[in-house]
Design a protein around this nucleic acid. Structure first.
Lengths: 222, 222
DNA sequence: AAAATATCGATATTTATTTATCGATATTTA
DNA sequence: TAAATATCGATAAATAAATATCGATATTTT
């Protein structure tokens, strides 16, 4: 009675693969738009600067599409499977706290819907920023944060406040029932074990890129 | 004649450790601000939700600070060493293309100076956005991009244009001599091998967080 | 239609990363 | 001041991830 699911065991996808899946998805959708219907691991690997073996393994563990030797994989099938693994189509309502420059940028960003993010309300401590609408979303005074999280049973919170306020906002969110926090404040937050935390650290990305640049420039000197 | 540098061999720090270093740095600076002068691996591990063994190993390979049994490591020394590894103090001049919402946010972001990013000029294709200053930085028409990169010998480029323009901007940058590209457009860019590319994919982060949230919520149902 | 070739899936190997162990040592406690 | 204890550095073991190998198969070439 065993299903024909190859390595597709128990939805257990490693973190390393999970990090690459969004890249595959973006790449495959571009190819789809170009009219490509079948693509091989070698092709993907060349374009994405990965090894073909890695691409094959990643596909095997995140999709049940069968590749054909000498031909490749069906693009539509890969896209559908990767989207499912990434939770495309799920909807997560979220609140955002901190309607400053960065907060407004996230509120305006249109790329999130596909990943199921639905920011239902924003909050700010500055009365001057409250009770206005940004991209159709109302900014409430931060005093109402807990109330609204509870009322709408919201599970995800986005923090875009200055770092000195971040822990306090985080605590309020956790107390009100938030289970996943996306933190853009450059600070270390303390959360209980059963709350997921993802720090978005632009400075860290920059540091990594800078060190790569240094390597490149050094090589060219030789 | 061997130097007392422990595992501190050849400046070769693994990518996995490199990714964690900015987190350590942020954490240690907070402790420093609180007046903490010595800290143990167990302490760091508890707060950062890592294992003490991993913390010890990370410190050993990125710092030459000697820990004392039963005591810990000198905070100031750790900070200094990690900053050096991350290239804190290096200065990288950069150009930014795309003075929209996200571009303006990055131009205004103050957290980058410490990591040596110095955005010297911004560019946009919309004449209405040009020749104004944002946070003291002039926005030039994109036609002048190549010229200014070459004139000031700039090596890093930041792309915050809509995805359909990203590859074109990327090509102009590469042709003009850019060696490291920080891409915020949600698209797959093709660059030569000797150019470093870092894609900043907010949707990908979100996808990972969403899948963690799903796991948490499922556990609570049981 | 047969031979050559490219890519597949599966498995094996290598490399990287994390976690565990253990003697040494600095502090704390008795 | 001696014994107990916590944390260190170093090394070893275990786990995870990336890469290599190989027979099978679908297409292309001859």
């Amino acid at each position: 009675m065993e299903e024909n699911l190859k390595n597709f065991k128990k939805n257990e996808i490693s973190p390393a693969i999970m990090r690459r899946l969004p890249n595959y998805l973006r790449y495959l959708k571009e190819k789809q738009k170009e009219g490509v219907e079948i693509i091989s691991s070698v092709n993907i690997a060349d374009d994405m600067k990965l090894s073909p073996i890695q691409v094959k393994k990643d596909i095997a563990s995140s999709s049940k599409v069968q590749g054909k030797p000498r031909i490749g994989f069906e693009v539509d099938g890969l896209i559908a499977d990767i989207e499912r693994v990434l939770g495309y189509g799920n909807v997560n309502d979220a609140v955002l706290v901190g309607a400053g420059q960065l907060g407004k940028t996230l509120l305006s960003y249109t790329g999130f819907e596909n990943y199921g993010l639905n920011i239902v309300a924003a909050f700010d401590s500055d009365p001057a920023k409250c009770n206005i609408k940004i991209k159709n979303k109302t900014v409430y005074p931060v005093e109402r944060l807990s109330e609204i999280i509870k009322k709408y049973n919201i599970r995800m919170g986005i923090i875009t406040v200055p770092e000195r306020f971040a822990q306090n906002i985080c605590d309020i969110m956790v107390e009100a029932g938030i289970k996943a926090i996306w933190n853009f404040a450059p600070t270390h937050l303390i959360v209980p074990d059963k709350v997921a935390l993802k720090n978005e650290d632009l400075a860290a990305s920059l540091a990594i890129l800078s060190s790569q640049l240094k390597v490149i420039l050094n090589k060219q000197e030789n």
